[in-house]
Computed example of a mutant assay.
Amino acid sequence: MKATGINFRHLYFFRVVASEGSVTRAAERLGLAIQTVSTQVAALEQSVGKSLLTQQGRRLVPTDAGRVALTYAEQIFELGDRMQEALDEADNGRMRLTVGISDSLPKLIAYRLMETAFGMESPIKLICVEREFETLLADLALHKLDVVLTDRTVRASASLRVFSHLLGESEMMLFGASALARRHGRDFPDSLNGAPLLLPTRNNALRGRIDEWLLQHHIRPDIVGEFEDNAMLNTFGRRGLGLFFAPAGLEDDIRGQFNAVPVGAATGLREQFYAISSERRIRHPAVEAILAGQTGLFGG
């Protein structure tokens, strides 16, 4: 007869054995007797009514049921670690906020989106993680992140229970180093025919809209570079390799940080910015502040 609850000590021992591939090595790592570790894992298997480990050559590997249990175990102990960190930070009067930032999102925009969280009465400890969009969604689903900031939306599904929140949008402008901007600034946008352009790669949400805008204006530029990472694109633009698109709301920042000047406004071309949150009963106060504080941030 199966028990109604899981002993997390047993689950922890199983996790270590699965990681080490051996009861002996797990016992050495834990500083315990082999029999103690073996008994704990056996107790877990009896509790769930399934074999969780099987011998494969010289290693113990998870069974199908064991792989499922191990996935949940990783989430459980990850949340346990985060709970302890949150409790420690609560003693220091700080609230932990873990933000995933899509590598395609302009870093200056990411800062603007998070700015309201720093104005809260309770100070926060910010943890920023920059990765590919799909990886961030997986981490969000596992509750490793509190929110994801990105330039694209995502639909919730049975396997991915998340919400997309439009934080703002901005008209795009074309920028470039001074000499390059002067050369292509007259008769804009017709002056862009043959102009060197730096663009995001085609898996970027903005790229399709840029291609459509160029097609509508019958512009055939010289695409000299395509970049996954927005910061890298801007760096090459600062060095004068080509012209690049950026949100008009960041004009002052781009002038200051990248020594680049506007070439012209890409009328009709806009970029959207989103916060992706997981479905939770308790919402993070700092995430709520981010969601509530974006109206008019980018000038419509």
Rank of each mutant, 00 (worst) to 15 (best):
residue 8 F to L: 10
residue 9 R to M: 08
residue 10 H to A: 02
residue 10 H to T: 02
residue 12 Y to G: 07
residue 15 R to I: 00
residue 16 V to D: 03
residue 17 V to Y: 00
residue 24 T to S: 10
residue 33 A to S: 06
residue 36 T to E: 00
residue 36 T to D: 00
residue 36 T to K: 00
residue 43 A to M: 02
residue 49 G to H: 00
residue 51 S to C: 06
residue 53 L to E: 04
residue 57 G to E: 04
residue 58 R to E: 07
residue 62 P to I: 03
residue 66 G to I: 02
residue 71 T to M: 08
residue 72 Y to N: 07
residue 78 E to M: 14
residue 81 D to S: 15
residue 81 D to M: 12
residue 89 E to G: 05
residue 91 D to C: 09
residue 91 D to G: 11
residue 92 N to Q: 13
residue 93 G to M: 05
residue 96 R to F: 08
residue 100 G to Q: 11
residue 101 I to M: 05
residue 102 S to V: 01
residue 103 D to F: 06
residue 110 A to R: 07
residue 110 A to G: 12
residue 111 Y to K: 12
residue 121 E to Q: 15
residue 128 C to M: 14
residue 138 A to V: 13
residue 141 A to N: 13
residue 144 K to L: 10
residue 154 V to M: 11
residue 155 R to D: 14
residue 156 A to M: 13
residue 156 A to G: 12
residue 165 H to K: 08
residue 165 H to P: 06
residue 166 L to P: 07
residue 167 L to H: 08
residue 170 S to L: 08
residue 173 M to Q: 11
residue 175 F to V: 03
residue 176 G to I: 04
residue 176 G to K: 05
residue 176 G to Y: 00
residue 179 A to V: 09
residue 190 D to G: 09
residue 199 L to G: 01
residue 201 T to Q: 14
residue 202 R to I: 11
residue 206 L to I: 07
residue 211 D to T: 12
residue 212 E to F: 12
residue 220 R to F: 10
residue 222 D to A: 11
residue 236 F to N: 10
residue 236 F to L: 13
residue 244 F to T: 05
residue 244 F to R: 08
residue 245 F to E: 07
residue 246 A to K: 03
residue 247 P to E: 04
residue 256 G to F: 04
residue 256 G to K: 12
residue 257 Q to K: 11
residue 261 V to P: 06
residue 264 G to Y: 08
residue 271 E to K: 12
residue 272 Q to S: 14
residue 273 F to I: 03
residue 274 Y to G: 06
residue 277 S to Y: 03
residue 278 S to Y: 03
residue 280 R to K: 11
residue 282 I to P: 02
residue 294 Q to V: 06
